[in-house]
Structure formats: structure tokens, C-alpha cells
């Protein structure tokens, strides 16, 4: 369920320059996680910090394993 919520949030962000700008302006991870939780709730696909950390881990794994 949380994965599905994240995918919906990702799609929303990727089509909305305002959301992108807000998230791009927060390179600090802790601040980013707080902001992403708030914005995802506002978009109707509420994510927890744990959901977001899982998504970050999955993205890191995809990049690390790009040659496999």
C-alpha cells in the first residue's frame, strides 16, 4: 500500500513544477523527509518517514546495481 502511495506521490511531483521546486530546495535529508510527508498528505497519498526511507533505499539500490 505504501509503495502504491509513493508511486502516486512521485507521479504528482513529476507533473507539478511547484512541488518539484519545493522539494529541490531542501537538500538536507531531515528537512526533506518532513516536507515530503506534509506534501504527500496534502496530495492525498500520505507517506510516513519510513515509507520515504524505503523509497530512498530502493532508489539507491537501483543505481548501485545498474551494471548487474
Amino acid at each position: 500500500m505504501s509503495r502504491e502511495a509513493f508511486e502516486r506521490f512521485r507521479a504528482r511531483v513529476l507533473e507539478d513544477p511547484t512541488l518539484q521546486s519545493a522539494l529541490q530546495a531542501t537538500p538536507d535529508l531531515a528537512t526533506f523527509l518532513v516536507l515530503a510527508q506534509r506534501l504527500s498528505a496534502e496530495q492525498g497519498c500520505a507517506l510516513t518517514e519510513s515509507d520515504l526511507r524505503d523509497a530512498l533505499d530502493a532508489a539507491r539500490r537501483t543505481w548501485r546495481e545498474r551494471w548487474i
Binding site: Q20, T26, P27, L52, L56, A59, R60, W63
Partner: peptide, 16 residues
Amino acid sequence: TVEDRLRHPFALLFQH
């Protein structure tokens, strides 16, 4: 260069 950029959580999470 890419890895430097992927330290930013937005760049890591939100890719087309």
C-alpha cells in the same frame, strides 16, 4: 558527477 547529485534526496527519488 551523478553520484554527487544523487546525494540530494529529490534527485534520487524523483526521476522520470
